[in-house]
Design a protein around this nucleic acid. Structure first.
Lengths: 194, 194
DNA sequence: ACTATTTTGTACTATTTGGTAAAAAATAAA
DNA sequence: TTTATTTTTTACCAAATAGTACAAAATAGT
């Protein structure tokens, strides 16, 4: 295959762009900043992403993976106790670095920002959040089967409870970053899993 | 007092602007759109708000009042049973018009959008959310004193639980607008007040 | 070495944006 | 009725923005 060699990996630059979108949001992240963050020029960019910024954002939404979420996924895969994995997932938020508090949830931010602006992009973010809900659903199902979670509450509703907790904490953590505030708050929220 | 008469009331146009900011957010609401929504021209606008769009947004944050929230405030003022007032406040979200679901919480949206963009505006939104938290705090205090709420949980933490519920629901309601989903979710979330 | 192919870098452009300036209009006071 | 004052209207502007065009560069195959 002939041609001048590429100087970047598409997957990698999308990750870098996603990180900036996560911090600043779709509108506030300018193409210039994005190019700087990705380390490529306009020519390369518009060749790789002919639709420009919007296409880049779409790819970012598809490919984004929150570190904390990946750990939860891994813990559940590994067959650890589901309720304990969920507890840890949420309690870890209380001691996250301040910069992470400020960023919140990329998908939640997107849903909030684009609900009345760009329905297609919003729906993509919604879809990713529903994946998280599904993760909760599976974990709760498993815990119920195992008998580690004994509650009369509906599994689907419990999953949405946790989803709503996630959504809410990602706003509240911008108001309170102190673990002394966040920890007891999260503990209280998780009492439902007793 | 001499001079050409004003054709608008400042308070009123700020409300109209706030409504657009609520729908579209700070960045996405262009000055042009804002002027159209307010029904005034550039000259009038920059005379009344010399700092422009940002000043208008500040005023909008200060002066904004969510209808649902006003009703909660009124119910509590009137001396109604606090826990019941809070229950109604949240359960009413389940049957809100779809357009309101799409808008979510103006302050939550602002915190999410401006956390890494404009700290001063973000702080103003945070402050307003803390007012809501305070409202919850007072209501819970009162209910505890009256004996209508018997729980060992800390009042401050319960208030932040409700604040986080508010924050979370205002994202989740963009994913699910069906009362059949929202109602049982909110019921479950409010079990803590039993 | 030459050619076809692909990517990169750079200069350019059209549009949108928030904002300014100044003339025209509408009033109250003298 | 004139004047001072305040607001509105309209024309203008500078900066930023996303995006385009195209020449130069770097490779593989012949």
């Amino acid at each position: 295959m002939a041609g001048r060699p590429k100087i970047f990996d598409k997957h990698e630059v999308v990750n870098k762009a996603a990180d900036l979108f996560w911090s600043k949001g779709y509108e506030a992240a300018s193409t210039e900043e994005l190019l700087a963050a990705m380390g490529i020029g306009k020519g390369s960019f518009y060749l790789a992403f002919p639709e420009g910024k919007r296409e880049l954002f779409e790819k970012a939404l598809d490919q984004f993976n929150n570190g904390a979420l990946q750990r939860l996924y891994a813990a559940l895969e590994k067959g650890g106790e589901p309720v304990e994995a969920i507890r840890r997932f949420f309690l870890d938020m209380a001691v996250a670095p301040k910069e992470e508090h400020g960023k919140g949830c990329f998908m939640g931010n997107t849903v909030a920002a684009l609900s009345n602006i760009d329905d297609e992009l919003k729906q993509k973010a919604v879809q990713r959040l529903k994946q998280l809900e599904q993760l909760f659903y599976n974990a709760i199902s498993k815990a119920k089967q195992q008998g580690t979670l004994k509650t009369g509450e509906d599994t689907a509703t419990l999953a949405r409870y946790l989803l709503t907790l996630w959504n809410g904490l990602n706003i509240t953590r911008r108001m309170y970053t102190d673990p002394k505030v966040l920890r007891p708050l999260i503990e209280l929220q998780l009492k439902i899993l007793h």
